[in-house]
Design a protein around this nucleic acid. Structure first.
Lengths: 246, 246
DNA sequence: ATAATAGTGTCTCTAAGACATTATGCG
DNA sequence: CGCATAATGTCTTAGAGACACTATTAT
């Protein structure tokens, strides 16, 4: 091959796709019912071709004068003052046929938010939260996921967005045990049962020793649930990291 | 913002950068000497501006008719028939100023190979293996790395390649305990001490129970080291996965 | 009192740290 | 034999599975 110069290379369209996840707040700690979904993903209804009318991940083409991180932050319609959210680059998708309009590569991101912190009516397109059904194999590895409508039917997504969401769930399942990511999907004050639901549904099994595991990472807020018909739960918050290096 | 059309977006130059790693085969299992390096990275001497004369990661601009995986596979000068290598997408770098020629984003990859399997004289540019000094903090997290010359002096790399190598080492350190990646950096027949060196230098501490940990993943080859001046080591190979699902 | 979930306590199992002990070939 | 590293064995600790048990509120 002859030594090509910088300007001889074909430039490529670059997009971002953001898997925005939050907790669905379903109290089902010991539920055997696998149809009880715990995580939700934010999807946007496409109003132009291709895939017009289908649901898709938020994102879009990346301007050449922005970094991918900036593009993602700008796209997330976070309410003013929100600091407790989490953003992570996931994977860059470069399959030749992933966009019927032509060659487009896409940098996938994960964003974890408290659902209340996202302004869902911000964009020009219809936006909606969808339940995620996570399927594990017998070794508790995430195998695949389904995005489901309220009536339980599966949603068909635009582009390769089903795969991107699956990759996001795999990534999070792989790191939930040794990171604090779960705290980014719940409100500032939460019930341990609700937090455990996130661990359980990502891990694919019931985390037996959850309260022991989480005990030194949370503290009580003093608030308590009411009118439950059973023993009420205390509300907890994430404990501030203690400095251990003094 | 007005609804832009597909073709209205500025396209961007996309490159790949590959962190090719291998084992340096230094017998220093219990060495306290932190100057004994265990991992090596393959670097290419740049013969054009920018950064002419500096060492850089192999890679290059990505043709619009190839996936990133194809671009990386083509760039790796693997000798014919090599199957035992590992490739993984690392991260996509999009900082505005990472290339002085203009806007270039780069998809970083990790490749783990047995050094003998790479044809280092394949390309038109000078290529060389460099030792990596890995620095951990007190909690054994990878903090940063240095690329060092044979005389111990630090190598200054082109572009943001120092950061990319650091990210690669962090990624590998994070997953070495629950994956088989270490096997991809050693020859088909290896000594347990040599394999442990890879674990030790990525983890940042001496993996005390290493032989117990690795025992059921390896098997003896029957070959044995000679003329060592001390008890000779057996050679081992990676055990084929047993089917547990029959 | 009962239902139903919140929360605690205890026994066990497994992986790994710490470290002493034995094994082996070469000079 | 003694040196140096290979390889094994044992005691201990930390984290988590299993699961019984107690606590608390609404009806």
């Amino acid at each position: 091959m002859i030594n090509k110069d910088f300007s001889d290379y074909e430039k490529i369209s670059v997009a971002t796709d953001i898997v925005v996840l939050s907790n669905a707040i379903k109290p089902a700690l010991r539920a055997k019912d696998s149809d009880t979904y715990v995580l939700r993903v934010l999807l946007i209804k496409r109003d132009i071709e291709p895939f017009k009318g289908k649901w898709s991940l938020p994102g879009g083409f990346m301007d050449a004068d922005k970094t991918a991180d900036e593009a993602v932050t700008n796209k997330l319609a976070l309410k003013t003052g929100v600091e407790n959210y989490y953003k992570e680059q996931l994977y860059t998708y470069t399959d030749m046929d992933r966009d019927p309009r032509g060659r487009v590569i896409s940098i996938g991101y994960i964003a974890l938010v408290d659902k209340e912190d996202i302004d869902i009516s911000h964009g020009k397109n219809e936006a909606k939260w969808f339940d995620i059904a996570i399927h594990h194999d017998e070794k508790h590895n995430v195998e695949n996921v389904d995005i489901v409508n309220e009536d339980g039917s599966k949603v068909e997504l635009a582009f390769d967005h089903q795969r991107i969401i699956t990759d996001a769930i795999k990534r999070l399942a792989g790191k939930i045990l040794y990171t604090d990511i779960a705290f980014y999907m719940v409100p500032a004050e939460f019930k341990l049962g609700g937090l455990q639901n996130i661990y359980n549904s990502l891990l694919g099994y019931n985390f037996q020793a959850f309260r022991r595991f989480i005990a030194d990472k949370v503290e009580e807020t003093g608030h308590i649930e009411t009118s439950t018909g059973h023993r009420p739960s205390k509300f907890y918050r994430k404990k501030k990291e203690e400095r251990t290096d003094i």
